[in-house]
């Protein structure tokens, strides 16, 4: 059998070049401890930042800020802890695509529910009130 190691696998090796920890092109990519620890420290700091951010009143921007910090943390975990920075780009594409499809799903569902919920709620309030009145009498 003459399998080739496909573009995906080859890209794996290209990733090695810009990295100093390992001198070989065939071994595993080993993330240096210092790098792991730095990422860990940043993650902890960002966790404090998330909590801290709730004490600042930014209105709707609070949610955006919390999510932005979460995305940064997630990106760090993916890139370094999960080795995505040195991994096949396709694996990254899989990750990004899954997030994109979640966003698509949420986007449409939210767009739709935003439009019909006020009507439904108004009807519900009416029902509740008429029930309450009926019960009151």
């Amino acid at each position: 059998m003459s399998h080739t190691t496909t573009p995906d696998a080859t890209d794996n090796h290209n990733g090695h070049k810009d990295h100093e920890d390992h001198d070989s092109h065939h071994g595993p990519h080993v993330v240096p401890f210092s790098m792991l620890f730095t990422i860990f420290a940043i993650l902890i700091v960002l966790t404090f930042a998330t909590v801290g951010a709730t004490y600042v009143q930014l209105g709707d921007f609070n949610l955006a800020l919390a999510l932005a910090i979460a995305v940064v943390k997630a990106a760090l975990v993916c890139l370094y802890f999960m080795h995505l920075r040195w991994d096949s780009p396709f694996n990254g594409l899989v990750l990004v695509a899954s997030f994109a499809f979640v966003a698509l799903f949420i986007g449409f569902a939210l767009m739709d529910s935003k439009a019909y919920t006020p009507e439904v709620d108004a009807a519900a309030v009416e029902m509740i009130q008429s029930d309450a009145e009926a019960a009151g009498q």
Partner: peptide, 13 residues
């Protein structure tokens, strides 16, 4: 699989 690398890449994928 042909090589361990191919196997590892497949597993990771």
């Amino acid at each position: 699989f042909e090589t361990p690398e191919q196997q590892l890449s497949s597993a990771k994928l």
